[in-house]
Write a protein that binds this DNA or RNA. Structure first.
Length: 857
RNA sequence: GCCGGGGUGGCGGAAUUGGCAGACGCAAGGGACUUAAAAUCCCUUGGGGUAAUGUACCCCGUGCGGGUUCAAGUCCCGCCCCCGGCACCA
C-alpha cells in the first residue's frame, strides 16, 4: 500500500475529462450498425433560462443508463435536441426588443454548457432544434400530409381575446379571467382555426394501450381516461311546436321513460333560433342575457371552482319518443357543448345532476328504475344511479336495466328514433396559435380557391425576420401575409397562425435518425431499424398530451406507410420531481433558503415563516444551482447524490446536508484506489483457493455487488445500486484495516469497483481507470460479470423461530439448509430453544431454506 | 366527488414470491488523532423494561381497527391522513 495519499481534487479531474469523450467520439452511434442497437431517449427540453438540479435528474438518469448499456455491449443511440419554439421566447423578445431566435440560441448554448458540466454526453451529430427551418420544414410537410388525408381541417373555435392589447391570449396568459399583462377583462372571440382529427384515431389510441407492456400502468390509465370512451344510444326527440328535432346522447337508454325535461348547452345552435322567435321582449332579454352570462363564466370556470346549477326555460317543448309526452326544453349551465350533441335528456330520478336541477326548478321526477323488482320507491331523496328493474316504463316494466338498455335501444332503432353509438371525451386537436414564434401553418387563403396548401417544393414557409416583434404575431407583417395563390395565381393571403409546439415535439424522435436530411422527413428504412424507441424517459407531466400526440402522429405515419410500427415508444419511464424547502413570509413573500437563519424567522421582519416542500422554481426562490454545487463538490457528487436521493419514479426532497455524504463517499473511493495504484504496475493474479475466510468474504461481496448493481440498473433502482457500491467500499476498508490483504484480490476487486461506479460518476471513473494504466475510455471496457460460484456461501446463519418469533440463530453448512431432519436436531440442541420447547409437543416444523426455521408448539 | 400513488426511526429511504423490519446515507452523542480546528477513523443510536459495568434477556413497534396465516410493512375487510391526475363527459 502506498503511504502517500493524494487528495481528491475533483475540479482538476473533471476539467481533464470534460471534452475527452466528445473528442474520442465515445458516445456516437453508428446508425448503419443495427446489431444490438438500442435507442435510448430522454424527452428534449424547452430551452428557457437556466437549469437547476431538479432538471438534472432526467439527464443524469439517462447518462448513467446509457454509459452502462454501452459497457454491456449495446450499440446505443442517445441523442438530444431542443423544443425551441414557444411563448416564453416571444415574451422575452418583446420585453428586450430582440429576436426570439437570439434568445433561444443563447439559452441552447447555456443548456449545452450545463450538460458538459454535468458530464452528460450526447450524440450531437444527430441534434435537432425545432425552430430550425431545416426542421420545421418537415413539421409543415407533416401538416400537408395530414391535410391531404383530410385529417387537418378548419373550423370556428373560441379564443381568449384581450380588447386592450388587441391580441389573442394563450390559456396560461389568462389569470382569473383577466389579461396577464394589462389586467383587462378577457373576451371570448370566435375564430377560424386549424384542427387535427385525432378523434379519428380515438379507438386505436385506446386499443393499442393494451399492448404497451413497458409503460407504467398509471400513465396508461390517464390516457384511457383522457380518451374517455363510452357506449350509449343517440336518441332523436321531435320538437313539439316547431320544425326540427334534437339529438341527445345517453348511456342510459333504459331510463328514457323517466326523461322529464331536456337541457341544452348555451352554445347549442338551436338556442339562437329559439331566442329569436320569442315574441315577448322581456322574456327574450332574459334568455339571451342568461346565455351570454353563462358563456362568459364558462371560460373562467376553472378558477371559480364549483358552479351552482342554473338554467332558464325556453318556452319550447320536445316529445319524449317513449311516452309521447311533451317535456320542457331548458338551457342549463352544466351542459357541455363539446361533448355529445350539446343537448341532454334529463332523467332526474336517476342522475344526481338532473335531480338537483329538477328540485331547484320544481320539475317532475319520475322513477323508472327501482332497486327491487316491482317495488317503486316511496319518495326519492336522491337520484338512484345503480342498476335495477324498470317501472313506469310501459311494456318494458320488470326488465333488468342491463337488458332494458339493449331492448329499448333496439326498439328506438327500429322506430328510426335512435341508434347505438360510441362517444369519446377526446376532442380534436386545436393546433392553431396566433403567435409569431412557431412553425407557420403552410396554407394560403385565396378569394377564388379557398384554403390552398403551399406546394411541397416551396417549403419551408419561413418565419420573416422583423425588427420588432409585434404582439399580434404574423398577421401584422404585410410582407409575409401578401402572396399569390399557388393554384390560380391571384392575390392571396398567407395563413398567419403558427402550430402548437406539441406538433413540433410529436415527431422529433424520428428526425434524430435523419437529422439534417434536406430531401426527406426521414429515412424510412433506418427509422424502422432503430424505432420504436427502446426506452423513453421523461417527466410524468407529459403523460397525457405529448405522449398521446406522438402516438397519434406515429399511427398516421404508419397508415401512409412512412413507418412500419404503430407505437413510437416501446418502454416508458416517468421520473418524479425534485422538491426543495421553500420559505414564505406573509408580508415579504418567498425568502431564499440561504437567507433564513435558524429558527425559521423572516430576515426582514422576524415573523415566523411558513416552511413547505415545493418543486423548484425561480418564483419560489428555492432553486438549487448546479454550478454552485459543482464548484463546491464536483459534478460527480451531484450526479451520485441525485441518483441516491430516492426512487427515481417518486418525487423526492433535495437536502443540501445530505449532499455531503455522497461527496464523502466519493472521497473514500478515491483514497481506496489511489492507495492501491501500485498494484496495477505489478503482476498479481487472483487465486481464489489461496484466500483466507475474510478474503473469501470480500470476494463474495465484490461479486454480489456487481450482480446487484447490474440488476438494479436494469430496473431503474439507482438509489439501491449506489448503496450497494457504498457497502462494498465499506467492506474494502474493513478488510484492509486488518492489513496484509491478498494483492490479487485487491487488484481485481478495485478494478471492478471502478468499472461499476463509472456510469454513475464518469469523471472519477475515467480518472482512476486511466491511472490504473489504461489508455482508452472506461466506457469502452466491458461491464464486469459475476461468478455464481463465488456467491455461494459455505456457512449460513439461519434464524430459529418459536411460534414465529426469533429466539436464536444457528450457523449451519450451506448444503443442509433444506435438510429438515438435520435442522430439527440442531435447532432443538440449542439451549435457548430446548428450554422453551421443554417437552412440549412440536406441532409443526417449518423450513425456509437458507433463511429460517420455525418451530410451532 | 371519481381514479391513481403513498403513510416504515430525529430525517431521506431499504426490505425477492408473505420468511430475522430499519440496509445505505444524513443528523446526533461519545471516543481516537491534532497545540487547535477542519478532514479522517472507530463506537453508539426505533421505543420501553429487566439484568447489570463484558458480550445477556424480555415486551412493544411499519397511519388506525379487525381478519387470514406457522409467519403480515407485504394478503383481505373497514376507517383516517397526505400527494398527484380528472373534475358537471349525460
Amino acid at each position: 500500500m502506498k503511504e502517500v495519499s493524494e487528495d481528491y481534487n475533483f475540479e482538476e479531474i473533471e476539467d481533464r475529462w470534460r471534452d475527452y469523450w466528445q473528442e474520442e467520439g465515445t458516445f456516437r452511434a453508428d446508425l448503419d450498425d443495427t446489431d444490438n442497437n438500442f435507442y435510448y431517449l430522454n424527452m428534449f427540453p424547452y430551452p428557457s433560462g437556466t437549469m437547476h438540479v431538479g432538471h438534472g435528474r432526467n439527464y443524469i438518469i439517462g447518462d448513467t443508463l446509457t454509459r452502462f448499456m454501452r459497457m454491456k455491449g449495446l450499440n446505443v443511440l442517445n441523442p438530444m435536441g431542443f423544443d425551441a419554439f414557444g411563448l416564453p421566447a416571444e415574451n422575452a423578445a418583446i420585453e428586450r426588443g430582440i429576436q426570439p431566435e437570439e434568445w433561444t440560441r443563447e439559452n441552447i448554448e447555456d443548456f449545452k454548457e450545463q450538460f458538459r458540466q454535468w458530464g452528460i454526453e450526447y450524440d450531437w451529430d444527430k441534434e435537432v432544434q425545432t425552430h430550425d427551418p431545416g426542421y420545421y420544414k418537415w413539421t409543415q410537410w407533416l401538416f400537408l400530409k395530414l391535410f391531404e388525408e383530410d385529417l387537418a381541417y378548419r373550423d370556428e373555435s373560441p379564443v381568449n381575446f384581450c380588447p386592450h392589447c388587441d391580441t389573442v391570449l394563450a390559456n396560461e396568459q389568462v389569470i382569473n379571467g383577466r389579461c396577464e399583462r394589462c389586467d383587462a377583462e378577457v373576451e371570448e372571440k370566435q375564430l377560424e382555426q386549424w384542427f387535427f382529427s385525432i378523434t379519428d384515431y380515438a379507438q386505436e389510441l385506446l386499443n393499442d394501450l393494451d399492448d404497451l407492456d413497458g409503460w407504467p400502468d398509471h400513465v396508461k390509465k390517464m390516457q384511457r381516461d383522457w380518451i374517455g370512451r363510452s357506449e350509449g344510444v343517440e336518441i332523436t326527440f321531435d320538437l313539439a311546436d316547431r320544425q326540427g328535432e334534437l339529438d341527445v346522447f345517453t348511456t342510459r337508454p333504459d331510463t328514457l321513460f323517466g326523461a322529464t325535461y331536456m337541457a341544452l348547452a348555451p352554445e347549442h345552435p338551436i338556442v339562437d333560433e329559439i331566442i329569436d322567435d320569442v315574441e315577448e321582449e322581456s322574456k327574450r332579454e332574459k334568455l339571451s342575457s342568461f346565455v351570454k352570462e353563462t358563456k362568459r363564466i364558462d371560460q373562467t370556470r376553472r378558477a371559480g371552482g364549483d358552479l351552482e346549477k342554473e338554467g332558464v326555460f325556453t318556452g319550447e317543448y320536445a316529445v319524449n319518443p317513449a311516452t309521447g309526452e311533451e317535456i320542457p326544453i331548458w338551457i342549463a349551465n352544466f351542459v357541455l357543448t363539446e361533448y355529445g350533441s350539446g343537448a341532454i335528456m334529463s332523467v332526474p330520478a336517476h342522475d344526481q345532476r338532473d335531480f338537483d336541477f329538477a328540485r331547484k326548478y320544481d320539475l317532475p321526477i319520475v322513477e323508472v328504475v327501482a332497486p327491487k323488482k316491482n317495488e317503486p320507491t316511496r319518495e326519492l331523496e336522491e337520484a338512484y344511479e345503480e342498476p335495477g328493474y324498470l317501472v313506469n316504463s310501459g311494456d318494458f316494466n320488470g326488465l333488468g336495466s342491463d337488458t332494458a338498455y339493449r331492448v329499448i335501444g333496439e326498439w328506438l332503432k327500429e322506430k328510426g328514433e335512435g341508434k347505438f353509438t360510441v362517444n369519446f371525451k377526446l376532442q380534436d386537436w386545436l393546433i392553431s396559435r396566433q403567435r409569431y414564434w412557431g412553425a407557420p401553418i403552410p396554407m394560403i387563403h385565396c378569394p377564388n380557391c379557398g384554403a390552398v396548401p403551399v406546394p411541397e417544393e416551396d417549403l419551408p414557409v419561413e418565419l420573416p425576420e422583423v425588427d420588432f416583434i409585434g404582439s399580434k404575431g404574423l398577421s401584422a407583417i404585410d410582407e409575409f401575409v401578401e402572396t399569390t395563390c399557388p393554384r390560380c395565381g391571384e392575390e392571396a393571403k398567407r395563413e398567419t397562425d403558427t402550430m402548437d409546439t406539441f406538433v413540433d415535439s410529436s415527431w422529433y424522435y424520428l428526425r434524430y435518425i435523419s437529422a439534417g436530411n434536406g430531401e426527406k422527413i426521414f429515412d424510412t428504412d433506418k427509422v424502422n431499424d432503430w424505432l420504436p424507441v427502446d426506452q423513453y424517459v421523461g417527466g410524468v407531466e407529459h403523460a397525457i398530451l405529448h405522449l398521446l400526440y406522438s402516438r397519434f402522429i406515429t399511427k398516421f405515419l404508419k397508415d401512409i406507410d412512412l413507418v412500419g410500427f404503430k407505437e413510437p415508444f416501446e418502454r416508458l419511464f416517468t421520473q418524479g420531481m425534485i422538491s426543495h424547502r421553500a420559505y414564505r413570509c406573509s408580508d415579504h413573500g418567498w425568502i431564499r433558503p440561504q437567507n433564513v437563519e435558524d429558527g425559521d424567522k423572516c430576515p426582514e421582519c422576524g415573523e415566523d415563516l411558513r416552511v413547505t416542500m415545493e418543486s423548484m422554481s425561480k418564483s419560489k426562490k428555492n432553486v438549487v444551482s448546479p454550478n454552485k454545487l459543482i464548484d463546491e463538490y464536483g459534478a460527480d457528487t451531484e450526479r451520485i447524490y441525485t441518483l441516491f436521493i430516492g426512487p427515481p419514479e417518486k418525487d423526492v426532497e433535495w437536502s443540501d446536508k445530505d449532499v455531503k455524504g455522497s461527496h464523502r463517499f466519493l472521497t473514500r473511493v478515491w483514497r481506496l484506489v489511489i492507495q492501491h495504484l501500485d498494484l496495477f504496475e505489478e503482476d498479481h493474479e487472483l487465486n481464489v483457493e489461496e484466500l483466507d475466510d475474510s478474503e473469501v468474504e470480500l470476494w463474495r461481496k465484490v461479486n454480489q455487488t456487481v450482480k446487484e448493481v447490474t440488476e438494479d440498473l436494469e430496473n431503474f433502482s439507482f438509489n439501491t445500486a449506489v448503496s450497494s457500491v457504498m457497502e462494498l467500499t465499506n467492506e474494502f476498508y474493513r478488510l484492509i484495516s486488518d492489513g496484509n490483504t491478498d494483492k490479487g484480490l485487491l487488484k481485481e476487486g478495485i478494478k471492478r469497483l471502478v468499472l461499476i461506479i463509472s456510469p454513475f460518476t464518469p469523471f472519477i471513473g475515467e480518472e482512476l481507470w486511466h491511472r490504473m494504466g489504461n489508455d482508452y475510455p472506461v466506457a469502452e471496457e466491458e461491464w464486469p460479470g459475476w461468478d455464481e460460484e463465488a456467491l455461494q456461501e459455505e456457512q449460513t446463519e439461519l434464524a430459529v423461530q418459536i411460534n414465529g418469533k426469533v429466539r436464536a440463530h444457528l450457523e449451519v453448512p450451506a448444503d443442509i439448509t433444506d435438510n429438515e431432519e438435520e435442522l430439527r436436531e440442531r435447532a432443538l440442541n440449542l439451549d435457548r430453544i430446548s428450554e422453551r420447547v421443554d417437552g412440549k409437543e412440536i406441532k409443526k416444523f417449518i423450513v425456509v431454506p437458507g433463511n429460517l426455521v420455525n418451530i410451532v408448539i
